[in-house]
């Protein structure tokens, strides 16, 4: 079978095609015929050796997101059966409960082989069944960006109908946040540097779009758009460079879920105290959150925003497209 490997991790050029024997069926594992995979920003970091401890072998298969069909199961597998359409939680061992750092030990596309392959042997406890209305390409976008957005909105943010949700930018987490928030009766504000992208997210249901290039004090624009109340939940997908404005834009008792980079800017946190706001570090989520999120996706018939689909053999082009930041929603690869 064909796979992609991360090679020497010196940048996009390191991505290399390889051929391997078919995976064997082992205890507790399912063999998945991969039908589609999806890229995340961190895949660009991994291929450039800028993510985590950077001790990955050259033969590591990348990508933490994908979807496929179970074609074989090992001994002791009870949760899925042959023929099931499934996705996997990014942290394969994080099935329930609170975060522990050891979960990085089984992280698809980082510390264990990921989805850039024709067939994947996956720990069955990490798998979840996908709703019928989703195509393979749509389902492939769920696991990391979708679960991250769900974690911020629900377990962390306790979203209620009528809340205002602010999402920064039009990347995967923000667009998933938009769609899940709308399904829950919330009002959604999205920022972008492009009016064209804002028009697209409005078509997906965003109530208000703010161009942060033409409105640099977008935090004030959020307050104006909410009659001074601010956003109840913020998907802070950018990092410390935007955090001061995110706190300014937050409501009293606001919940700010932080997933972005933490290396730029000098955030002013005083507003957290004045507003009794909560700032939370978010590391994707557990399988329970994935299952809950899929229930919402199925009930609301959410169609994930797939920006562009590449062929499996064009994997490097998919990476290059993601790096160009021209996308809205997810960059997907088809595997057949």
């Amino acid at each position: 079978m064909k796979v992609w490997e991360i090679g020497e991790q010196q940048g996009l050029g390191s991505l290399r095609a390889a051929t391997r024997p078919e995976p064997e069926t082992t205890r507790g594992h399912a063999i998945i015929k991969v039908r589609a995979s999806a890229l995340n920003h961190r895949d660009l970091m991994i291929i450039a050796k800028r993510y985590g401890a950077n001790v990955r072998p050259e033969t590591r298969v990348p990508l933490s997101d994908g979807a496929g069909e179970v074609i074989a199961i090992g001994e002791g597998v009870t949760d899925v059966k042959i023929g099931d359409r499934v996705v996997a939680n990014m942290f394969a061992d994080w099935t329930e409960g609170a975060w522990v750092p050891g979960l990085f030990g089984a992280d698809y596309g980082n510390t264990i082989d990921g989805w850039a392959t024709e067939r994947l042997s996956a720990p069955a406890r990490s798998l979840a069944k996908i709703p019928d209305h989703l195509s393979w390409e749509e389902a492939a976008t769920i696991a990391s960006a979708g679960v991250t957005a769900w974690n911020i909105l629900e377990p962390f943010g306790h979203l209620k109908a009528g809340d205002t949700v602010l999402a920064l930018g039009t990347g995967g987490v923000s667009v998933w946040g938009l769609q899940l928030a709308k399904a829950a009766g919330a009002r959604v504000i999205i920022t972008s540097s492009s009016d064209q992208k804002l028009a697209k997210v409005k078509a997906l249901g965003a109530d208000i779009g703010i161009n942060y290039k033409t409105t640099p004090d977008w935090d004030k624009a959020v307050l104006d758009a909410t009659h001074g109340a601010g956003a109840d939940i913020v998907l802070e997908t950018v990092g410390t460079g935007t955090l001061t404005r995110s706190i300014n834009a937050a409501a009293f008792n606001g919940r700010i879920g932080m997933v972005g980079g933490l290396d730029a800017g000098q955030p002013q946190l005083f507003g957290l105290v004045a507003k009794n706001a909560v700032l939370g570090g978010i590391t994707v989520g557990n399988r329970r959150m994935l299952v809950d999120m899929l229930k919402s996706v199925g009930a609301a018939k959410i169609k994930p925003a797939v920006d562009k689909v590449f062929a499996f053999d064009d994997m490097p082009k998919a990476y290059a497209y993601l790096e160009s930041a021209a996308h809205i929603g997810k960059v997907v690869v088809r595997h057949d």
Partner: peptide
């Protein structure tokens, strides 16, 4: 500015009280 780096990696919550 406080160093917030541990917050994401450790899933820490910070709240004004």
């Amino acid at each position: 500015p406080p160093a917030l780096f541990p917050m994401v990696g450790n899933n820490i919550t910070l709240k004004g009280i």
